[in-house]
Amino acid sequence: MRVNDAVSGVLIMLLSAVLFANTFTFPAVPGVQYGAAVFPRAVLAVMFGAGAWLTVKGLMTVKAAGWIQIDAWARRPGSWIMFALIVAGMLFYILAADAIGFVPVSGIIIFVLLLAARGRTHLLSSAILALSFPLLLYYVFVNALRVPLPAGWLGGVL
C-alpha cells in the first residue's frame, strides 16, 4: 500500500510542526543560552524542509501515479485480519503477561498466529509448538540469562 509522497510529506510536516510547538513547553533554565530546545528545533526544521520537498515532488506525480496504490495483498481482507492478529497478540502480551505469565500468554499468541497462518491442517504440530517453544524460551532466559520473565499462573510449577 503506497500513498503518494505528497501525503507522506504533509504528514511529516504536520508531525514536525506539532513537535516544534511542543518544544515551547520545555521549562526555561535561567542563564542557559543553548538549552534543551535548540537541538530538537534544528532537527525538526530539517525534517519540515524534507517533508515540504516530498510534498512538492509528490504533487508533480499525482496525475501519473494517483494518490494511492493498493497492492494485491492489501485488497485481501485476510491480510488485514492477519495484521490485526499480530498487533492484538502483542497488545495481549503487554496487558496480560504480568498477571497470567509468560508461558501461557506466548503459547496462546503462537497457537493463534500459527492457526491463522497455516490453517487447521497442522493443528497438532501447532499445539506442540505453542506448548514447547515458550517453555524452552522461559528456561533459557530465566535460568541461563537471568531475565525475570513473568511467571504468572505457573509460578509454583516452573
Binding site: 499480530i86 497478540g89 502483542m90 502480551y93 503487554i94 503477561a97 504480568d98 509468560f102 506466548s106 499468541i109 503462537i110 498466529l113 500459527l114 497462518a117 497455516r118 497442522h122 504440530s125 509448538l129 517453544f133 515458550p134 524460551l137 532466559f141 540469562l145 531475565v147 525475570p148 520473565l149
Partner: peptide, 25 residues
C-alpha cells in the same frame, strides 16, 4: 509461516530483556 510466529515471541522476550520492563514490548 511456522517460523514467523515463533520469531515474534522471540522478539517480545528480547525487547523485555533489555531492562526487564513491558516498555520494551
Amino acid at each position: 509461516r511456522t517460523l514467523m510466529p515463533l520469531i515474534l515471541v522471540f522478539c517480545i522476550v528480547g525487547s523485555f530483556a533489555i531492562n526487564n520492563s513491558m516498555m520494551g514490548v
